[in-house]
């Protein structure tokens, strides 16, 4: 009896210890900061752009061809040092292992749920831009085993490349094919002097994607593609009824990619 009680106490004590230490880390208890200073959001110089839920409206009527989108894609890929792998001479990888943050495809590939067989010749010929949808219920965040990808309070789904283990579960999880994996060393496909020396590149073996230019928003700048679009892409707060995006949504018929999956994409298309 005595022995039983003692062993029970031992086990109970151990379990309480294990649970408390486990729960502590699960709850993400903040560790004591090493730095003696403080942290602030207010950037030096410009005011940060803030929103409750960032969203994007793309007016595809105002883009005539793929060439119209090219400056936007170039701006995005230059801003973030995105390497160009497709068509490059490479020994290791192959074309399908490319990196894309903002890219184009035909209507039936961009919106496979829209199954009308007979489309207007204009829509049939048109290409549509695709990027990360910054979903309200992002499957990529749900499946990531290390919280390397996470959703910010302002609705942006972004990544910490330092923490990514390269398991690619998020790529299987994303219904929009918005994620790219660095199958090869991206630096090998960038010039010696990278396009934007103020922004890092990525390393081999991590996943990356569009970040809605969160680093620019924090410094008070609009996303690179929005800036380059000359007003053809609108960006604003979905929860603010007076924002440009809400006005555009109120005045135009818009569609989103694969809305039936319940992810609530944050990118709207005026067709």
């Amino acid at each position: 009896m005595k022995k039983n009680r003692r062993s029970f106490l031992k086990v109970a004590g151990l379990s309480v210890f294990a649970l408390s230490s486990g729960l502590g880390s699960l709850a993400g208890e903040a560790k004591a900061d090493v730095a003696p200073g403080k942290y602030e959001a207010e950037p030096l110089g410009r005011k940060p752009l803030a929103a409750k839920r960032w969203a994007m409206v793309i007016d595809t009527r105002k883009f005539k061809s793929a060439d119209d989108y090219k400056p936007l894609i170039d701006a995005c890929h230059k801003e973030h040092n995105v390497p160009r792998i497709r068509g490059a001479q490479n020994a290791e990888g192959h074309d399908d292992q490319e990196i894309k943050w903002l890219w184009l495809d035909k209507f039936d590939h961009a919106f496979p749920d829209e199954m009308n067989e007979y489309l207007t010749p204009k829509i049939k010929a048109q290409v549509f831009p695709m990027l990360c949808n910054h979903c309200t219920n992002p499957p990529c965040v749900r499946v990531c085993p290390t919280q390397a990808t996470y959703k910010l309070p302002n609705g942006i789904v972004t990544m910490d490349y330092h923490r990514c283990i390269g398991c690619r579960f998020c790529m299987a999880g994303c219904p929009y094919g918005a994620r790219s994996f660095n199958f090869v060393d991206p630096r090998k496909y960038l010039p010696e002097q990278v396009p934007n020396p103020k922004f890092p590149t990525r390393m081999i073996g991590v996943v990356e994607k569009c970040t809605f230019c969160v680093e620019r928003l924090d410094k008070g700048m609009m996303p690179a593609c929005v800036e380059a679009s000359g007003g053809r892409i609108l960006f604003g707060d979905l929860e603010d009824p007076n924002s440009v995006v809400r006005k555009a949504l109120a005045e135009n018929f818009t569609i989103r990619r694969k809305p039936s999956l319940g992810t609530q994409p944050g990118v709207y298309y005026i067709i």
């Binding site: 602030e40 950037p43 910490d160 330092h162």
Partner: peptide, 20 residues
């Protein structure tokens, strides 16, 4: 450690300024 903390503050909290 400071760099690690900076990274987490900037990326996860949106705190991009350090006041020493």
């Amino acid at each position: 450690q400071l760099l690690n903390e900076w990274r987490d503050q900037a990326l996860r909290n949106g705190s991009r300024v350090y006041v020493n």
